[in-house]
Nucleic acid binder design. Structure first.
Lengths: 225, 225
DNA sequence: TATTGTATAATTGTATACAATATTAAAAAC
DNA sequence: GTTTTTAATATTGTATACAATTATACAATA
């Protein structure tokens, strides 16, 4: 299999990086819930490190908006509300189309080959209903396009949102029909980018995000009603 | 004068907060240049603190994209290229319109009064060609709209970009004609939001960002040619 | 009982000490 | 003279110690 380390979660070797990842995942997975107080000593003990790396991680969490910090008091978890998630999809809708367009202009042959491999693997795992793999591939696919758009800031911004998106997506992909749709939408986007068709790539990506949003909202609706 | 603390730079009382602000300003003002290595001990001595708060600030700088971090090596400044700045304006163009629309829907009477005051002050200082005050007011105006849109994530994202925008804007506002245009554009946006005219607010804001972009590019062009 | 004051404990904020790693300089080998 | 090896130095990574602040418990008072 090809090297796709850059799209994996960049598991920072340093302790503060690991603590940061662990806390972030903990929040997105629901281990640490909205309003929970993140005690430095407890966190440090829990992860078997000292307070120093924990503090560095907490400062980053705060900047990323996943936690709120009050001087001399501490850090409380700031989970994602339903409104937040709607906002994320709205912002994605705005930016991802542009990103796909720019990817069609700037993508390298190497990145194109990467995308192709993801598509092929997606087809394979869609047949097997392997949600975990599909989720991973979905991330890889989108993040490669972020990279390919050739803008450091766009890449950074969208990757930040992507963390949030990930926690929502698994629900969608566990529905076989939506998984199949996702595959064919990804494939169409890939082909448009490959053919350097900027307009089409943009339109297809917008439609893809719109579909994902609609599906997610439908799921939510069915759940709560 | 009314209370507008929330729009001022939230000068964090803690040392790491101060160090963070200082480093960020240093980068945006050009004190620390692209490629500079930010030595922890040196920074700590320079600011009269220990390494601990410096490290926390550096981790945040890294997450914000203003610096690149390599484990066991350190942090190097990652300034903004001309391409980066173009990207910022492109992203703003995408999102700020939406924000203005949402502000027209959700703004509170209090925030509206805030906006009104900024507009009046802008008029005053435009007559005096006081660039420093105008720059501050410009920030206040836009950030109040970010707040008023009622989305934590939109506010956060745009505020992050705004830091970059600030460093570019002063050049524009030092041109009296552009300053006058800025004032009248802001006023029109304010009136649209006040009248709860979503469509108009969105269009005017998009036009405003587009004009700012065009002016900036013209300036840059004249400078380099 | 409610409230205020005070002492204690817990927690965060910062500095410093030591360990691990990387850089640099100097010496040895070729 | 160039390259390699090795020691010295500098820098980052982490842990711990202490200071400052905040929360808690309990007693004194109204």
């Amino acid at each position: 299999m090809r090297d796709n380390k850059q799209n994996e979660i960049e598991s920072n070797q340093s302790l503060h990086g690991k603590v940061f990842d662990q806390l972030k995942n903990g929040i997105l997975n629901g281990k640490y819930k909205h309003g929970d107080l993140l005690n430095e000593v407890k966190m440090a003990e829990e992860m078997g490190v000292s307070r120093t790396p924990v503090r560095e991680a907490l400062r980053q969490l705060e900047l990323e908006g996943l936690a709120a910090y009050t001087p001399n008091k501490g850090v409380v978890v700031r989970g994602l509300s339903r409104e937040d998630i709607k906002d994320i999809y709205q912002i994605r809708l705005m930016i991802e189309g542009m990103t796909a367009r720019r990817a069609a202009e700037n993508i390298t042959e190497e990145e194109l080959a990467e995308l192709k491999e993801y598509i092929e693997l997606e087809e394979f795992y869609t047949g097997r209903d392997d949600v975990k793999q599909l989720s991973r591939l979905d991330s890889c696919f989108h993040e490669t396009i972020y990279k390919a758009c050739g803008s450091r800031l766009l890449t950074k911004t969208l990757k930040a949102f992507h963390h949030y998106v990930k926690s929502v997506r698994d629900i969608s992909l566990s529905c076989p029909e939506r998984a199949k749709e996702t595959y064919s939408e990804h494939k169409a986007i890939y082909e448009a980018i490959r053919d350097r068709d900027r307009e089409l790539a943009e339109i297809l990506m917008e439609q893809h995000v719109r579909n994902a949003t609609a599906f997610m909202e439908k799921q939510n609706y069915e759940k709560t009603s």
